[in-house]
């Protein structure tokens, strides 16, 4: 005897089974389902196609879809694992997983390193470091003379570049973060531990019965 009610839920193009995503990330199945509620909201803000476009990402971060920001651009590009210009649900969950309080610190450092490797050469070069400092100063309307910026970049670079080859590699970056853990403070979002409380509606749309 079948049930008279069958729930038909329409999923977005990049939708992935929450059980699989939960097995590959620090999230539980319920948390992945709650993230789907967030994803639906973000991905329908401008174009309702179930994908997060860069303008929607900027809108969510800055309440302004046109606002440009070097670091938001880099984060979007890293979330867009397939490099097709949009963030799919699976990419969203896998990338946010790095920001989970329980994610390995090494993953957080590697993500930050890739973020800072603007030219994606596998190294952070001095020019990239200066470019990022200047971008932050522009963003925050802080005025520092070029001499001061040069001095800050020089000091950081000489501390990090322990091999003295003019570039910061991943090992050097890891060592520096170990000495200054606050450098990756933004790589942890405590909020992710409470995601099911923020989006309780996931219960009504859940496909997986949770036994966690």
């Amino acid at each position: 005897m079948g049930c008279c009610y069958s729930k038909k839920v329409i999923r977005t193009p990049g939708y992935k089974d929450p059980t699989i995503l939960a097995s590959e990330t620090p999230f539980t199945v319920s948390e992945v389902e709650a993230l789907y509620e967030l994803f639906k909201k973000l991905s329908s803000a401008i174009i309702n196609d179930g994908l997060i476009h860069k303008e929607e990402f900027q809108l969510a971060l800055f309440r302004n879809s046109k606002r440009k920001n070097l670091f938001a651009d880099r984060i979007f590009d890293l979330f867009d694992i397939k490099r097709n210009g949009v963030i799919e649900f699976g990419e969203f969950v896998r990338s946010l997983g790095v920001f989970h309080p329980n994610a390995p610190v090494e993953d957080k450092i590697k993500f930050a390193y890739r973020l800072y490797d603007l030219k994606q050469t596998g190294f952070i070069e001095r020019a990239e470091l200066k470019e990022m400092v200047l971008a932050l100063l522009r963003e925050s309307d802080i005025v520092l003379s070029d001499d001061v910026v040069e001095a800050i970049v020089d000091k950081t670079f000489s501390e990090a570049d322990t091999k003295g080859d003019g570039k910061i590699d991943l090992d050097e970056f890891m060592d520096m973060v170990k000495n200054h853990p606050m450098l990756i403070k933004n790589m942890t979002l405590p909020y992710l531990k409470d995601i099911t409380l923020a989006f309780p509606s996931f219960i009504f749309n859940a496909e997986v019965e949770n036994i966690e």
């Binding site: 967030l38 909201k41 973000l42 803000a45 809108l59 969510a60 971060l61 800055f62 309440r63 920001n69 070097l70 670091f71 938001a72 651009d73 880099r74 984060i75 946010l96 920001f99 973020l115 800072y116 470091l129 200066k130 990022m132 400092v133 971008a135 932050l136 100063l137 963003e139 925050s140 001061v148 001095a151 800050i152 970049v153 000091k155 950081t156 670079f157 501390e159 520096m176 200054h180 606050m182 450098l183 990756i184 403070k185 933004n186 979002l189 909020y191 995601i195 923020a198």
Partner: peptide, 24 residues
């Protein structure tokens, strides 16, 4: 200058993903 360039960068608003979770 006792400032770390990476520390300065980490204060970017573009790096603060907590805004994704705020009610719009």
């Amino acid at each position: 200058y006792n400032l770390n360039a990476f520390d300065i960068i980490s204060y970017s608003e573009g790096f603060d993903l907590s805004a994704l979770f705020e009610e719009k």
